[in-house]
Design a protein around this nucleic acid. Structure first.
Lengths: 209, 209
DNA sequence: AGATGATCTTTACGCCGTCCAGATTCAGAT
DNA sequence: ATCTGAATCTGGACGGCGTAAAGATCATCT
């Protein structure tokens, strides 16, 4: 009678419905786009009544928060990998930026949710500044490593913020195809990304020598 | 019997309902926030039945498009003024960037609508690249004026795009208060903005000498 | 076995975007 | 001055949404 979870565990009626709801939401987000992401549709996708999610999330916003959190985790992971693949500090910075933008391009709807969730809050999610392997901290640490100028605390945060803003701006443009013609003109995405980053003088300053 | 329009014209039943709807939408956006911006609420605010807007806009999206268009016009105007107040090319660039970000800070909901409208289209609104006094063209023209390096066409668009992305990224952070603590630490917004822009090396490169 | 509390369903409410059938009002021809 | 046709607005309806409340179901503890 219980076909949902072939897992060995299935602790309650459904078997970790919370997990199933988050997955359903991400599936909908990928396949149908952000406008299709209604709480009812998520419940439907998970094979459960429209009110069931309320036993695991206070409201729709909390479900989206959970989805966003997984988005950040995924982004952190990708940036960690990208950074690890480089040796020079300069390449690490560029790789971080490119990884960030490519994540947004590959998961535009998820990327939007990640920011929309914190939109009406005071700041970005706490874990961004707290967790050590967070995207933000990775950029900051790599900037420290670069350590061109003697950076005090404020100056360091400022540089990180600048990098963050630059990447975010480019990410949105790429994710939502708002400058595609130029990308085509330059004969490819990689060239386009590096070109923009060079002009921003933060992630890729390959033209500085 | 007709109290809506004291104007001399009032061509039809209501007297330019289209205009009234756009104004109502902007009023709601300012006062109640973006979540309160429903088509029904706009009709209510304009004192008209929920179906009336459909005689002036194909659907909700088209109303938002109109609102967005006015947003771009306003932004263009502010940037024109900011640019005109400066003499040196370097100051013009910085002024453009600061004006852009301050617009987003002062009209966060409108700013969001401006981008959301083009979100599911192929590119940014046409007039951004076409109209001569558009924000985009102003940045590009000022970059030409600066003309440090001999820029070919592609390189120029690239630089403009980079500036645009940088400004957009910072604008979102400021509009949605996502880096407020740092702003406070630096003792004010102006210092914060200029600080970030300096690091981005596009709008304000005052540290280059 | 029976009680307890967590989990899920059913039902319901008000709001949403949108469509449709009429009522109203305007512009122009007669 | 009146008729006609088109543009504009109203009222009501439909399905979908987020969410709350009440009842049914089921795992666990005693």
């Amino acid at each position: 009678m219980r076909e949902a979870a072939t897992a060995d565990h299935r602790p309650y009626h459904h078997g970790d419905l919370r997990r199933a709801l988050i997955d359903a939401a991400r599936r909908l987000l990928e396949n149908e786009g952000p406008t299709a992401l209604s709480l009812r549709a998520v419940a439907r996708e998970a094979g459960v009544s429209p009110a069931a999610p309320y036993h695991h999330f206070k409201d729709k916003g909390e479900l989206l928060d959970a989805v966003a959190h997984e988005g950040w985790d995924l982004l952190n992971e990708l940036m960690t990998q990208a950074r690890a693949r480089q040796t020079s500090v300069r390449d690490k910075l560029t790789a971080l930026g490119v990884a960030y933008v490519k994540f947004a391009r590959d998961n535009p709807a998820l990327y939007r949710v990640m920011y929309d969730c914190s939109r009406d809050k005071e700041n970005l999610p706490e874990h961004l500044h707290a967790d050590n392997d967070s995207a933000y901290c990775q950029v900051r640490d790599t900037l420290v490593e670069a350590g061109a100028s003697p950076l005090n605390e404020t100056e360091l945060e400022l540089a990180t913020t600048a990098a963050w803003c630059a990447a975010h701006g480019l990410a949105e443009m790429v994710a939502f195809k708002q400058f595609d013609p130029l990308k085509v003109t330059m004969g490819g995405e990689e060239a386009f990304l590096r070109g923009v980053f060079e002009h921003m003088g933060i992630f890729g300053h390959a033209h500085r020598d």
